[in-house]
């Protein structure tokens, strides 16, 4: 039924056999995790955000579900540090799957150092995490200021040769930050990260997370993510990887219509059958393209803006 429909897409110069990757933060910190993600059927593996040194992250609880099919996490950028990058990249190469290393940092030099290790290890691209909402001194603390975004992206882009993606989160400045990231040399934007949130237990009267703040993901943030992708695409027409509540072919299609060249999945891998999910989305997208009378996915990217 879907013969002849081409889902091949391109992000930051990477050729992907279909538009569905995992989002950073779902597994992705050991070779075994990479193998598991590969079995999920993703077209590229995105690593857990790596910092220069090992980070134990926040103490549990680190993830809970919330009413409305959302997850709230406060993992706290737990990761093995730069020594964890080469084994991950090696495993991805062994499996012949593109690998994007998510890079974190609390200052410009840390981003450069981690991105350089990713490049030396043979990663296909790096994704700069400028938007983690729950780790003080990292992520959104840096990325909510467009000038910081420019500074970090520019510094990394001028140091390494592999493509740089900038992952931005929800903020009033997001369109401006997106522009600054592109100006700084980002080849694509990943939009959006989880949204800063708080959950309180009404019996103990305490915040659920010791760290108080968490990042909300999944279905509740999908329309917000679509809005950001829509606005940024409308303004700047960059290559975008859409993230936030993608859980089936329809939510993926919405992201693509809003302007995403590819999508990433996190929460749905946890709440749905992770071994079937990508396959179902890919098949659903093929059927959808046929319904639209389109021969390849590239024709659907940002189509809502042209309709």
């Amino acid at each position: 039924m879907s013969v002849g429909v081409d889902l091949t897409t391109y992000v930051a110069g990477l050729k992907l056999k279909h538009p569905v990757m995992n989002s950073s933060g779902i597994l992705g910190s050991t070779p075994e995790h990479v193998e598991r993600l590969f079995k999920y059927g993703v077209s590229a593996v995105v690593s857990k955000t790596m910092t220069k040194g090992f980070r134990v992250g926040h103490e549990p609880p680190i993830i809970i579900a919330l009413e409305g099919e959302g997850l709230l996490n406060s993992v706290g950028l737990a990761n093995p540090g730069i020594s964890g990058i080469p084994p991950i990249v090696r495993k991805a190469k062994e499996l012949n799957i593109p690998v994007i290393v998510s890079v974190g940092g609390s200052e410009v030099q840390e981003f450069i150092d981690v991105a350089s290790v990713a490049e030396e290890s043979g990663a296909d691209a790096v994704e700069l995490n400028l938007s983690c909402p729950h780790t003080k001194g990292y992520g959104i603390d840096i990325g909510s200021d467009p000038n910081n975004v420019y500074e970090v992206v520019k510094a990394v882009s001028s140091t390494i040769k592999i493509p740089v993606l900038a992952k931005l989160g929800l903020s009033d400045n997001v369109v401006k930050s997106a522009g600054k990231a592109l100006e700084g040399g980002a080849k694509a934007l990943t939009l959006i990260n989880t949204v800063k949130s708080v959950a309180i237990d009404v019996f103990s009267c305490k915040p659920v997370f010791k760290n108080v703040y968490g990042g909300l993901s999944g279905t509740p943030i999908h329309p917000i993510a679509v809005r950001v992708v829509y606005d940024v695409y409308k303004e700047l027409k960059p290559e975008i990887v859409g993230v936030g509540g993608v859980s089936d072919w329809k939510t993926a299609a919405e992201m693509i219509l809003a302007g995403s060249s590819a999508v990433q999945i996190g929460t749905a891998f946890i709440l749905k059958d992770s071994r079937k999910l990508v396959h179902d989305i890919v098949e659903g997208l093929k059927e959808w393209l046929i319904k639209l009378g389109l021969k390849n996915i590239c024709e659907a990217i940002g189509l809502t803006h042209k309709a």
């Binding site: 609880p61 089936d248 659903g284 639209l292 809502t304």
Partner: peptide, 25 residues
């Protein structure tokens, strides 16, 4: 098409797993 695609397309098969992941007092 954006307005016409039916939500029935994405039947949620994950509700049991989802409920297990909620924090129950």
């Amino acid at each position: 098409i954006t307005h016409s695609l039916n939500h029935r397309a994405s039947i949620n098969t994950s509700s049991e797993r989802f409920h297990n992941y909620l924090l129950k007092p």
